[in-house]
Design a protein around this nucleic acid. Structure first.
Length: 423
RNA sequence: GGAGAGGUGGCUGAGUGGCUGAAAGCGCUCCCCUGCUAAGGGAGUAUACGUUAAUAGCGUAUCGAGGGUUCGAAUCCCUCUCUCUCCGCCA
């Protein structure tokens, strides 16, 4: 959510910024509505003030019976007009709220303008894509060849976009989770959390998935208001919802492993083969809660914390800054980390690290005591994958494969895999 | 799932229709006094929105949430929700 005062006072700047996302937002409509809502609010408050005054008089002794009756009549009149104004206000402020929840975040100035993912800018890369002296297989082939990934059974059980992993592959997958959490907590200073993976809609509103992206979420049937999380960003960030944080608690660095569930509504036909895009996957998520002035440093830190996993696994990757129209709804700036996938001869997203500035905090009413001015100011929130487990799993299979279809276990993972070297 | 109890400010805890945005205590902040590692005195100490140059005033709202009764509700009524205790069930 954007600061309505900012929209009011710097309308042109806000509009220009929003336009960079290639979307059409009619700020004029919004501002008109907002203004009339404030007008009615003032009206209502004046009426209430009058009403309160009269009611108080009735209660105080020293008012004769006639004046009492007169006051009661006056208040009844006020109540009538209040009723009308209040219902108008209700309607308009709902509308304003709806619009303001659908406005995306403002982009940071450093975000490059662009139409789609092709306009994302590479800012660094690490490691060299490995040269194979044989034709590398993709993870689907490797898994099916070894009978360790079973898409058929998964589809029998659950339909498309699911996978069953077995034996050493299941172990590798689990080892990755353990490894990632260990690195983030032991080396990078995160506090691990175990959180619900089913949440109320207000949590999804808080982080920005709702109301606009309902079709991407799994809603639980027979439950009024429960959804499967698309990412642990939702429960982790919402930990600070409606709170005023003591500045001594900042920065907060939280990590959690959860399953993630996504409908993938807009991606028919994309990545239909293999495990790249699933309805259910595991992820270790990183969240920072920081003071506003620290959030861009935190974004760099968060990103490098995510990168550290790939370095330890010796997987080649690059970091790109997302261009304006590829940057997500809640983010002011996002770095994607993309890992090398040999079978596709491409870098593929494995982590997305975003600074949401005060956008989510405003939705969640998450503030901190600003000691400089004594005010309660909104915190800045950041989130990033550290990392997506399924895609890391794929990257390992493909990058560490041997000619015979076996996979060498990366050094760093062996202690999580009973010291196996080859699977 | 059944039965009961309860949700008041940072905390403890008063408050059954108006003088309560809310007693008292604790905690915290500032000031005063005190010559000694103590104590005492005073003031202040919720949040949001609107208005405003203002984080000054003023107004409105908020005592779990929503609705109702009433001129007027933390206080009465209804619904929901959460917490706790006991029973049942259960990983």
């Amino acid at each position: 959510m954007l600061d309505p005062k900012l929209i009011r006072s710097k309308t042109k700047k806000v509009a220009e910024n929003l336009a960079k996302r290639d979307n059409n937002f009619d700020l004029g409509v919004f501002l008109d509505l907002e203004e009339s809502s404030r007008k009615i609010q003032t009206e209502i408050e004046t009426l209430r003030s009058e009403k309160n005054k009269l009611s108080k008089q009735i209660g105080s002794s020293g008012l004769d019976e006639t004046s009492k009756q007169q006051n009661i009549e006056k208040v009844n009149k006020i109540n009538d007009s209040l009723k009308a104004s209040e219902s108008d206000f209700e309607k308009i402020s709902q509308e304003v709220k709806k619009l303001s929840l659908e406005l995306p975040n403002l982009l940071d100035e450093s975000v490059p303008k662009g139409k789609d993912e092709n306009d994302n800018l590479e800012i660094r890369n690490w490691g060299e894509p490995k040269e194979f002296n044989f034709e590398p297989k993709d993870h689907t082939e490797l898994g099916e060849k070894n009978g360790l990934i079973d898409f058929e059974s998964a589809s029998k059980i659950s339909g498309s976009r699911f996978a069953v992993m077995s034996n050493d592959y299941a172990l590798l997958h689990r080892a990755l989770i353990h490894f990632m959490l260990d690195v983030q907590t032991n080396e990078n200073g995160y506090i691990e959390h175990y959180v619900p993976s089913i949440v109320k809609s207000e949590s999804l509103v808080g982080t920005g998935q709702l109301p606009k992206f309902a079709e991407d979420q799994y809603k639980i049937e027979n439950e009024e208001d429960l959804y499967l999380i698309p990412t642990a960003e939702v429960p982790l960030t919402n930990l600070i919802r409606e709170s005023i944080i003591d500045p001594s608690q900042l920065p907060m660095k939280m990590a959690a492993h959860t399953p993630c569930y996504r409908q993938e509504a807009g991606s028919y036909g994309q990545d239909t083969r293999g495990m790249i895009r699933q309805h259910q996957f595991e992820k270790v998520e990183l969240v920072h809660i920081v003071k506003p002035e620290e959030s861009y440093d935190a974004l760099e830190e968060l990103t490098s914390n995510a990168e550290s996993i790939l370095v330890k696994l010796n997987l080649p990757y690059r970091v790109v800054v997302l261009c304006s129209s590829d940057t997500g709804f809640s983010a002011a700036k996002t770095y994607d980390i993309e890992v090398w996938i040999p079978s596709q001869e491409k870098y593929r997203e494995i982590s997305s690290c975003s600074n949401c500035e005060s956008f989510q905090a405003r939705r969640m009413k998450a503030r901190y005591k600003n000691e400089e001015n004594g005010q309660n100011d909104y915190v800045h929130t950041l989130n990033g994958s550290g990392l997506a487990v399924g895609r890391t799993f794929i990257a390992i299979l493909e990058n560490y494969q041997n000619e015979d279809g076996s996979v060498t276990v990366p050094e760093a993972l062996r202690k999580y895999m009973n010291n196996k070297e080859i699977i």
